[in-house]
Design a protein around this nucleic acid. Sequence first.
DNA 1: GGGATTTACTTGATTAATGAAAGGACTTAT
DNA 2: ATAAGTCCTTTCATTAATCAAGTAAATCCC
Lengths: 146, 146
Amino acid sequence: MINERTYNMLDNTDIRILEELSHNSRVTMKELGEKVHMTGQATSARVAKLEDNGVIEGYTIKVNQAKLGCHIHAFITIFTQSLNHRPYLSFIKSQGEYTINNFKISGDGCYLLECRFPSNEHLDQFLTQLNKYANYKLTTVINKME
Amino acid sequence: MINERTYNMLDNTDIRILEELSHNSRVTMKELGEKVHMTGQATSARVAKLEDNGVIEGYTIKVNQAKLGCHIHAFITIFTQSLNHRPYLSFIKSQGEYTINNFKISGDGCYLLECRFPSNEHLDQFLTQLNKYANYKLTTVINKME
DNA sequence: GGGATTTACTTGATTAATGAAAGGACTTAT
DNA sequence: ATAAGTCCTTTCATTAATCAAGTAAATCCC
């Protein structure tokens, strides 16, 4: 009999494990096992396999950035000035503290840069620096809808 | 002596704990404690406090969406057709499977919608439906820069 | 088709982590 | 000065994770 797991695909149990870990990645393997009707040991083996497969890329936390003093969430569409993107990219690397994501995109612009700043002053300073390497269009997040 | 913790602020140890948990949220309290030079028990108490304060909002995993069959990552700038956003918002709620984030924004458009789709066909179908409630501008992610 | 191999799971024993309680050092408030 | 509170450590009981065997089912290969 051929099933999903024959070809290293994910079955329903794996999906439920991923859902549960997305919701709470610190759950014990024993407890996680109870939710998917397996022993902790079997669950642990499944999870290890998901890690090896690269399906689970890592375990992390959701941090309330506002409580850490980072109140400004911005998306910045980047239009590099020169054909060579290197100057922009190395600038972003050097300013890593503010950057959440830097996506290479199709559509308007070359990159979509997602950042967080403590204040408008920090944002202003960042944009001034950025403008040496690229033009930009600023979009700020007012609220995250649930 | 007055220090940060007097006023429920975060000190360096808290910051290091957050960094470490961001990097690996499944680390044991004992091991985490070693990194910040405290016992596991003290570390555990710190983490509990960070949870209570709402600084740590949750524990989650990074999933490789491409390996789950979701190959298309899109940002969709939304321009609602009517003054009333309700129809758009309830459409997004009903199509929640594709939506990662829906940000209310300043700048171009009313919302910035972040989505993932298994295929262009799914994206096409989604956009067709979406167009009943809003105009849009599509930006697709080619690559995520590291 | 049939024996060898692989895979996925269980059970049981060992090792490690967690949680609770008690106590000490230091700070703050009265 | 003293009482209360905070934050940490140590110790100990409980609980979970890990490791090693063992089993059953599916697959591979001739």
